[in-house]
């Protein structure tokens, strides 16, 4: 465990909490992609399947439970809460799950470290996490005026990924034999998807203006 990894995990948690609190406080999920949230839930469930038999550390186990729990709550709010579900922007959140899930499933069958169910599901979760933000980014682009909390949510998520890259660099430099090509490449692609958003987020922040994405 290094400081970059720790900062990454905390930022990830913070991003989810920002979103959950926004929904809870405003009773609105306007601008939030349910598709992205459900894809993240699928990512967490397929990756953290090992929770019950593969104990690594209390730290990891607590985070796994919290990530699954908080993301389930977001999905529950958006699908089931009597007021929140009415604010869901389903007409603009039209990205097809299959476009992301199918290629990731095929890729995880073709490129994995070991050919067994647990390993393939874990690999699938790595690939799926890399692209799960896409429905959210598309929705942001369509709704134009991005409210502050939604913007901060995506920014914190991107920052979390950036810190994971620093963590890998640090681990590569300090841990003999550490390598994780599959995770590195997926992670670089994932972080790359945020660059465009980052650019506009920083511009808006520098000019202290409301974040607006170009069409």
């Amino acid at each position: 465990m290094n400081l970059f990894r720790f900062a990454g995990d905390i930022l990830h948690l913070l991003s989810i909490l920002v979103l959950l609190l926004k929904i809870h406080a405003t009773k609105s999920c306007a601008g939030i992609s349910l598709k992205t949230q459900e894809l993240y839930l699928a990512v967490f469930i397929t990756r953290y399947l090992d929770l019950f038999w593969n104990f690594h550390s209390l730290y990891n186990s607590v985070f796994k439970v919290v990530y699954i729990g908080t993301t389930s709550m977001i999905v529950w709010y958006m699908r089931r809460h009597r007021n929140v579900k009415l604010t869901y922007d389903r007409d603009h959140d039209t990205f097809r799950y299959l476009f992301l899930v199918a290629p990731c499933a095929v890729l995880s069958l073709l490129i994995n470290a070991r050919y067994n169910l647990f390993e393939i599901l874990w690999t699938f979760s790595i690939y799926l996490e890399a692209v799960a933000i896409l429905p959210q980014l598309v929705l942001l682009q369509r709704t134009k005026n991005v409210d502050n909390l939604t913007g901060n949510y995506v920014f914190l998520l991107g920052l979390y990924r950036a810190f994971y890259i620093l963590n890998w660099v640090y681990r590569f430099a300090t841990e003999p034999g550490y390598s994780a090509w599959l995770v590195w490449i997926s992670g670089l692609i994932q972080t790359g998807l945020y660059l465009d958003f980052f650019y506009y987020y920083v511009q808006a922040w520098k000019q202290s203006k409301k974040l607006q994405l170009p069409s």
Binding site: D9, L182, V183
Partner: peptide, 10 residues
Amino acid sequence: GRGASAKDEL
């Protein structure tokens, strides 16, 4: 054995 892997990450 194999070196440390990314499985200890979240």
